[in-house]
């Protein structure tokens, strides 16, 4: 046994290794995660701490001088500024409209498209296509189609005898339009999550239930829906958070208008922070948004947990 690799190294006696294997391994691990970790410190943890400080200051636009004002910005938002509650109301309406519509549609589509049939790939591809499209592009086209006069939507409505409103010029219609177009844009994502979940449910359950005489609806109600519960929870949390974060869509379609009818929280923060340079106020708003998102997530997780017990 000549020239073995091991024997070549046998001479190198590690008398007193300056690092034990265990320590070395740990250092290696930290080396592996260090880019992520350092980036995380700089662009996430640092800013997260900073925002608390910002939220308690008032910034002078010209000199960029910060004055400490304590909880003044929060008082301003929660107690004094009527805009704030209007914006929160809009955000809640947006979420309340979008989340159920999105989930109901996603689930219906998934139920229709989870089994192979002629054309299933075509339909899945179609319903998912808006997801890969930029939100700005999507909003541009829909804004074009929703014009009061000469818009494609109203033209189609005219064919069936409906006189469509000037969608994006009337606050309530604008909100409805923004919700529906956003649902169409994003529903494909939830659809495929539901399809994946449906396909992972063994057919046996359904077959057993059918043998016992259950109708399609009963099978869905008693078997499929409960088995989908974990997926539904994930989808609900993600979609709700997503609805509070929606920005580009509204920026392009309505710019928060008309009459601030679609001014939602994320857009309001952008306006305050980057257009009016009320940095302290915007920071306070951002923290409030964070709190809302966290609270909603917790509530949903807790509700679901209680449901399952």
């Amino acid at each position: 046994m000549a020239g073995t690799a091991s024997r070549d190294n046998a001479a190198r006696q590690p008398g007193a290794p300056w690092l034990t294997l265990k320590t070395r391994e740990m250092l290696e691990a930290w080396l592996f995660v260090s880019p992520t970790f350092i980036g995380f410190l700089i662009f996430f943890l640092g800013p997260l701490v900073a925002i608390f400080y910002y939220s308690m200051t008032e910034w002078n636009l010209l000199s960029q001088q910060a004055t400490f004002v304590g909880l003044r910005n929060f008082e301003n938002a929660l107690l004094e500024n009527p805009d704030f509650w209007h914006v929160v109301r809009n955000s809640v309406i947006f979420a309340l409209g979008l989340v159920p519509l999105n989930i109901a549609l996603a689930l219906s589509l998934a139920l229709a498209l989870s089994r192979p049939f002629f054309g299933v790939v075509f339909f899945r591809t179609v319903f998912f296509a808006p997801v890969v499209t930029s939100a700005i592009a999507w909003a541009i086209v829909w804004k074009f189609m929703l014009q009061g006069e000469g818009g494609a939507v109203n033209q189609m409505l005219a064919w069936i005898g409906i006189d469509g409103p000037n969608w994006l010029r009337e606050p309530n219609w604008a909100m409805a339009a923004v919700i529906v177009t956003r649902v169409i844009k994003m529903v494909g994502l939830n659809m495929i999550l539901y399809i994946a979940a449906l396909q992972s449910i063994p057919r046996d359950y359904e077959e057993a239930a059918t043998l016992e005489g259950a109708s399609r609806w009963q099978v869905f109600r008693m078997i499929t829906w409960p088995l989908l519960a974990p997926t539904t929870l994930v989808i609900m949390v993600l979609t709700t958070i997503g609805s509070f974060k929606v920005f580009d869509h509204i920026y392009q379609m309505t710019g928060g208008g008309p009459e601030n009818g679609t001014l939602v929280l994320a857009f309001y923060i952008y306006q305050q922070g980057f257009k009016f340079f009320n940095v302290g106020y915007a920071a306070a708003l951002a923290l409030i948004m964070f709190a809302i998102v966290m609270a909603l997530t917790l509530v949903q997780v807790m509700l679901r947990r209680r449901d399952m017990e």
Binding site: F40, F44, G46, A50, I51, Y54, Y270, A282, L287
Partner: peptide
């Protein structure tokens, strides 16, 4: 580290964008 990363997923970008702008 995992805990921190999960947190980073939960926090909307709108929250950190203001400090990040100044950074």
């Amino acid at each position: 580290l995992m805990l921190f990363l999960v947190m980073a997923l939960m926090v909307p970008e709108e929250v950190t964008i203001i400090p990040n702008f100044f950074l």
